[in-house]
C-alpha cells in the first residue's frame, strides 16, 4: 500500500500510519475508505479467530466471456484472493458466528457463481450449526462475465436466507461502500437486521444504467446509505469504530437461544 492517500471525502492527504489506527476512517471528515476483506475481518472479529472455509472455490469462466480469464488473473494478483468473497467461521465477542466478507477490490466485489456459492454456504452453515450469520456486503452487483449464471445467484443466496429463517438463526447484513444491484436485490436486503456504514453507496441501478434508462435529476443523498435508512430499508447507520460492538451485542441478544443466554 502507498504511504499516503488523498481522502475521498475532504481531499486532505492522509498518511497510512494514521489511517491504520482508525481502520481507514478520515480523522478530519469521517469519510470511511474501503477496507479489504482481510482488513474487515481483522477490524471486526475476535483477534485470530477467523478460520477461512471454501477458500479453494474458483471461477471457471463458464461462458468463455471476452477478457474474463485475464481479469480474474489480474484480480487474483492484485488482491491475493481467489474471488470477491472470503467466508468462514469466527468469534465475535466470544461467540461463534459464520461470516462472509466481500472485497470490492476483486472485480468490484461482483457476484458470480463463486461469490454466490460462498454466501449460500455461509448461510447454510449458520443454519446447520445454529450460529448467527454475519455478511459484509461490498459489491457493484452481479458479475456480467458469468451472464445468467450470475443472475441465478440471486435466488441461490436467498435460498440460504430461507434456511436461516427456518432454523431460527439471526442473519445480519452490513452494507459497506458500495452495496448495489444484484447483491442489494438478493441476500443483502432480506437480512434480519441491516446495518450500514456512513455514506456507503446503496442502490439498485448503477449510474450508467439509470442514465441509459433516462432517469433525470436525483436528490443529493440518492443511493446513499442515509437515503435507504431514511426510507426504512436500513436499521441503523453505524460508524466503523462502533461496528464490532454493535454486531457483538446483536449476536449476543438475538442469538440468546442459540448460545445459551
Amino acid at each position: 500500500m502507498a504511504e499516503f492517500l488523498k481522502c475521498s471525502g475532504c481531499g486532505r492527504v492522509l498518511f497510512h500510519t494514521e489511517l491504520q489506527q482508525s481502520w481507514k476512517v478520515c480523522g478530519h471528515c469521517g469519510w470511511h475508505h474501503r477496507l479489504s476483506a482481510r482488513e474487515r475481518i481483522e477490524a471486526t472479529f475476535d483477534p485470530g479467530s477467523f478460520e477461512e472455509l471454501d477458500a479453494e472455490l474458483r471461477s471457471t469462466d463458464p461462458l468463455g466471456f471476452p477478457e474474463y480469464a485475464d481479469k480474474l488473473a489480474a484480480a487474483e494478483q492484485k488482491t491475493g484472493l481467489r474471488d470477491a468473497v472470503v467466508s468462514g467461521t469466527a468469534m465475535l465477542g466470544g461467540l461463534p458466528v459464520c461470516a462472509a466478507v466481500s472485497d470490492f477490490a476483486f472485480m468490484g466485489g461482483s457476484m458470480g457463481s463463486v461469490a454466490g456459492e460462498k454466501i449460500v454456504r455461509t448461510l447454510e452453515r449458520a443454519a446447520e450449526t445454529r450460529r448467527a450469520a454475519i455478511v459484509f456486503c461490498a459489491s457493484g452487483g452481479a458479475r456480467m462475465q458469468e451472464g445468467m449464471l450470475s443472475l441465478m445467484q440471486l435466488p441461490k443466496t436467498i435460498a440460504g436466507v430461507q434456511r436461516c429463517r427456518e432454523a431460527g438463526v439471526p442473519y445480519i447484513a452490513v452494507f459497506t461502500d458500495p452495496t448495489m444491484a444484484g447483491v442489494l436485490a438478493s441476500y443483502a436486503s432480506v437480512a434480519d437486521v441491516i446495518l450500514a456504514e456512513p455514506r456507503a453507496m446503496v442502490g439498485f441501478a448503477g449510474a450508467r444504467v439509470s442514465k441509459q434508462a433516462g432517469v433525470g435529476k436525483v436528490p443529493d443523498d440518492f443511493q446513499m446509505a442515509e437515503f435507504a435508512h431514511k426510507h426504512g430499508f436500513i436499521d441503523r447507520i453505524v460508524p466503523r469504530a462502533e461496528m464490532r460492538d454493535v454486531l457483538a451485542a446483536l449476536v449476543r441478544i438475538l442469538g440468546a437461544r442459540l448460545y445459551g443466554g
Partner: peptide, 14 residues
C-alpha cells in the same frame, strides 16, 4: 429506489 425496489425483488424471490 425510495420505496425499496431491491428489497421488493429480493422479498418476492424469497
Amino acid at each position: 429506489e425510495a420505496r425499496g425496489i431491491s428489497e421488493a425483488i429480493a422479498d418476492s424471490i424469497l
